[in-house]
């Protein structure tokens, strides 16, 4: 549904987006991750046709956003960053306008507004002026405008920003449910959201894609992936450390002593090594082990190591 080919955006001398390519099919929810200023919003603005690419091509449902903007825009719903909405209108008036501009009139318009209001929990503020809404309500009002015409493609720039935990949960569930039938791109800073919602994630840094895969695949890139943590009683710190370090596949060992219990984490040489756990279990046979589990890998650590490699290296030292 969405195809982005070698997209470039230059502001003055700065390459805000520097050769990004990817595709999103119907039934996919693509998470867009990256530090502030990485080019996420700029990319989304080019996909939705708000700004013109310096180079490259975007097609939505087969329509080129530069050549056939109207046809492409018809297929899309867009929630811009900071969720702007006309402050001098009521929520109902604003959604009615959004429906009309999408070609919905009369009964179709009434139904579309009612549906969006229902999905975004806006019943209570329907006749309130947008200006007087709290941030969460304003956000959901703008979100409601993006889904008013039940579009095939949804572009959401930080859709859960400014919501409370319950609302965040509702919106995530909504996105996941809609993702079954639509092609959705959404950007976020919240990594747990990626797990909760995305079928695939892309990490962008300095205008380039630095990682692209399912949340599972990304997590495998973490040094925590496949690491084994165990809680041991009755062994000295040095004994534990020596034993684990001697293993063929061990990269390094981290220890946390807590009274008589010692917690140790052994990291495998290759992240996500499936045999590492068995190796650790065999080596520690005969010890009194209170707890042992294999780590899944941590997205936040992957995110940091990819987007600011220098700092992470320093911390490891």
């Amino acid at each position: 549904m969405i195809k982005v080919e070698n997209l470039v955006k230059v502001f003055g001398t700065k390459h805000a987006v520097d050769g990004i390519s990817f595709a999103v099919e119907r039934g996919e929810v693509l998470g867009f991750l990256g530090p502030n200023g990485a080019g996420k919003s700029t990319t989304m603005r080019m996909i939705t046709g708000f700004i013109t690419p310096t180079e490259g091509k975007v097609t939505v449902g087969g329509f080129d956003i530069v050549e056939q903007p109207i046809a492409a825009k018809r297929l899309m719903g867009y929630l811009p960053e900071n969720a702007p909405a006309y402050t001098d209108m009521t929520v109902q008036g604003f959604l009615g306008f959004a429906a009309e501009i999408r070609g919905l009139h009369g009964e179709a318009k009434r139904k579309a507004v009612a549906r969006a209001v229902d999905l975004c929990f806006l019943e209570n503020v329907l006749h309130q002026s947008v200006e007087t809404l709290s941030k969460g309500y304003r956000h959901r009002t703008c979100f409601a405008q993006s889904i008013i015409h039940d579009p095939d493609v949804l572009i959401l720039d930080e859709p859960t920003d400014g919501l409370d935990p319950n609302q965040k949960h509702e919106i995530r569930m909504l996105i996941r449910k809609m993702g079954e039938k639509k092609a959705i791109i959404f950007s976020t800073h919240i990594l747990e959201e990626v797990d909760a919602v995305c079928s695939r994630a892309v990490i962008i840094d300095r205008g380039r894609i630095v990682a692209n895969g399912t949340p599972e695949q990304l997590r495998q890139k973490s040094e925590w992936a496949g690491a084994v943590t165990l809680r041991v009683v009755g062994q000295s710190e040095s004994a534990i450390k020596d034993k684990l370090t001697q293993l063929r596949s061990t990269k390094r060992v981290a220890l946390h002593a807590n009274g008589t219990q010692i917690k140790a984490t052994a990291f495998p040489r290759t992240a996500g090594d499936g045999d590492f756990t068995r190796e650790v279990i065999e080596a520690t046979r005969g010890w009194q082990i209170e707890e042992l589990h294999t780590e899944e890998g941590r997205l936040d650590e992957v995110f940091r190591s990819i987007t600011m490699p220098d700092t992470v290296k320093d911390q490891t030292k």
Binding site: K73, M76, Y78, P80, I101, G103
Partner: peptide, 8 residues
């Protein structure tokens, strides 16, 4: 940004 990304 909303206005310019609507189909008009």
């Amino acid at each position: 940004e909303l206005l310019m990304t609507m189909p008009i």
